[in-house]
Design a protein around this nucleic acid. Structure first.
Length: 552
RNA sequence: GCCCCCGUAGCUCAGGGGAUAGAGCGGUGGCCUCCGGAGCCAUAGGCGCAGGUUCGAAUCCUGCCGGGGGCACCA
């Protein structure tokens, strides 16, 4: 008996009351079923009667009572009480609740997946850093969260492609090349260039690996340094992301957007829809037709394409490639792009509420020794993705970044994360997984083949067992909600509840036989519950790209 | 000036209209003769302010106060 099962039962009960004429309402699609917070409220509670009272024109307690009478006859439900202003408190039979342990183990990695987003084809673009330096902490947040969103969407049945847009065109690239070239000659880096220490490393590598590069003619040499540095820096970003466990399906070069003709095609699409005009010798997109606060330039009066022109073409190209939704994950410093990107979709003839979706992630701050560590790509004192991983490891880094909703600013205390202690909740969750793994190993050593034993769900009737089962039953809804709202932080937060419920269970419920005690059906039932818990933790950690260790 | 985000426990943060607002760290006090104490139990401590909507608001709306970020024929 899961919350979903109960929702079905409640809906059926409502439908029954409607058809018998006792209730005049439309049966709602969504029925709120909550896990009871205090044990006097049974196992589950629902406020449906309160919600429907006005529409039905009847007092909530009266509706609740009619529902209670109906539900009390439902198999698996042992008790239904009307409480307070009209809540329904439902108590479920131990065997109906305990059966969940078996179905979780049977479902395995599939437990928690659904088809709620089946048919949707997402292009999820994130990080999209310039290839002019290492990935810093802001990129790192998206490296973890973007990947987690992709995983959660896929778990909900959607098709997902992860895409990294390489900003390899424009003046920043030239500044980057000039910086490396200057460093290669031992000259100071230009004022508007990149000053990080990595520039010196790049210069040294290139000089060593490309003989004679410093003797090339000025213009040719600048280009050579730019391209060599670009290639190496991109490879470095790719290597770091690979270690981090975030794997992109497509690395899309801005240059290729131009060379493939996609920019021209995109421009043509916009013209067809009548939103392109010329003024002051420049070519504009009339984004104000669709909610932007000013029109945007596509081609400057000097004939140069703007970055915005690439962006529009890139969007159109994503749609041409067959994605139903282009999902953009941007930093808070780009929030001004939201309106114009939405307008681009509208100008291309799409529905901006359906075909394009933009998530804004607030900035990450990091403190060390009580002081903020600055994050400037050009300062040379930036904290990079690599730094973070070196110090705290991939699991702790990913977990602590995913654990918070992206629309709230985040401050990470490096001193705290550096400690490999339970200061970090990731260890708390992983520890629960390792602990269960140990119990199951011990069971195997004792020769207990619990999978082959008769599972008696009704034996899981201890309060702590019920508590744990109810938490485990919330996993599918947690994943589906995380996908629907693009809020992957819900999963780790949920796993922390699972870990707590497990530890509480384990603290009072002996799982394995003691000493020379024989194996009872209760031991077997509890082993099933342990295995189910471990499965949920493993599935949930996988959605965050965090490992589920058997030992720690 | 206009736009976006945030304000919840000493600290870092959860809480998509529901009953007594949670977690980790930090305080205080307990629990190891057998399955992992990286754990469990108890206790102290909080919704920035003022209105509004609602049977019910930390949650939705308005205003104010405080903090962060953004405005371009830059990328």
């Amino acid at each position: 008996m899961t919350p979903e099962d109960l929702a079905v039962a409640v809906r059926a009960a409502l439908a029954g009351l409607v058809s018998s004429g006792e209730l005049a309402i439309d049966v709602p699609d969504e029925i709120v079923i909550e896990r009871a917070k205090v044990k006097e409220h049974g196992d589950y509670a629902t406020p449906v009667a309160l919600t429907l009272a006005k529409a039905a024109g009847q007092p909530p307690r009266q509706i609740a009572q009619m529902l209670a009478d109906q539900l009390a006859t439902t198999a698996g439900i042992t008790r239904v009480d009307v409480a307070g202003p009209g809540f329904l408190n439902i108590t479920v039979a131990a065997d109906a609740l305990g059966a969940l342990a078996h179905s979780i183990v049977t479902a395995g990695p599939a437990y928690g997946t659904s088809q709620t987003l089946t048919g949707q084809n997402f292009n999820i673009e994130f990080i999209s850093a310039n290839p002019t330096g290492p990935l810093h902490l802001g990129h790192t947040r998206w490296a973890a969260v973007g990947d987690a969103i992709a995983r959660v969407l896929a778990a909900a049945g959607a098709d997902v492609a992860r895409e990294f847009y390489i900003n390899d065109r424009g003046v920043q690239m030239d500044r980057f090349g000039a910086s490396v070239m200057a460093a290669a000659h031992g000259r100071p880096v230009p004022e508007d260039g990149y000053h990080g220490g990595y520039i010196l490393d790049l210069a040294a590598d290139i000089v060593a690996e490309v003989p004679g590069i410093r003797e090339l003619p000025e213009g040719e040499q600048l280009e050579a340094f730019r391209e060599e540095a670009y290639r190496r820096q991109l490879a470095q970003q790719q290597r770091v992301l690979d270690i981090f466990g975030t794997h992109f399906d497509v690395w899309y070069s801005e240059r290729s957007l131009h060379s493939s003709g996609a920019v021209d095609r995109g421009m043509e699409t916009l013209r067809e829809h009548g939103h392109v005009f010329e003024e002051d010798d420049a070519v504009w997109l009339r984004t104000t037709d669709h909610g932007d606060d000013k029109d945007r330039v596509l081609i400057k009066s000097d004939g140069e394409m703007t970055y915005f022109a690439s962006d529009t073409a890139y969007y159109v190209d994503k749609r041409v490639r067959g994605f139903t939704t282009a999902l953009y994950l941007l930093g808070a410093d780009h929030h001004g792009y939201v309106q114009r990107l939405k307008a681009v979709a509208a100008c291309a003839g799409d529905d901006p509420d359906v075909n394009i979706e933009i998530l804004i992630g607030q900035l990450v701050k990091i403190t060390q020794g009580g002081a903020e560590v600055r994050l400037s790509k050009r300062s040379g004192t930036m904290v990079t993705l690599e730094d973070l991983v070196d110090e705290v490891g991939v699991d702790a880094a990913r977990y602590s970044l995913i654990r918070y909703p992206v629309d709230s600013p985040l401050t990470l205390d490096l001193d705290l994360l550096v400690q490999r202690s339970n200061d970090n909740p990731v260890y708390y969750v992983q520890y629960a997984h390792a602990r269960i793994s140990s119990v199951l190993r011990n069971a195997a050593e004792l020769g207990i083949d619990w999978r082959e034993q008769d599972f008696q769900a009704g034996l899981l009737d201890h309060e702590r067992e019920g508590e744990l089962l109810r938490v485990l039953g919330e996993y599918p809804a947690t994943v589906a909600t995380a996908a629907e709202l693009r809020e992957p932080h819900r999963v780790p937060r949920y796993l922390e509840q699972v870990a707590t419920a497990y530890h509480r269970f384990y603290d009072t419920c002996r799982v394995l036989p003691r000493g020379d005690e024989g194996i009872s059906a209760q031991h077997v039932a509890r082993l099933w519950l342990c295995a189910a818990t471990r499965q949920v933790i493993a599935n949930g950690l996988a959605l965050s790209g965090v490992s589920a260790p058997e030992r720690m």
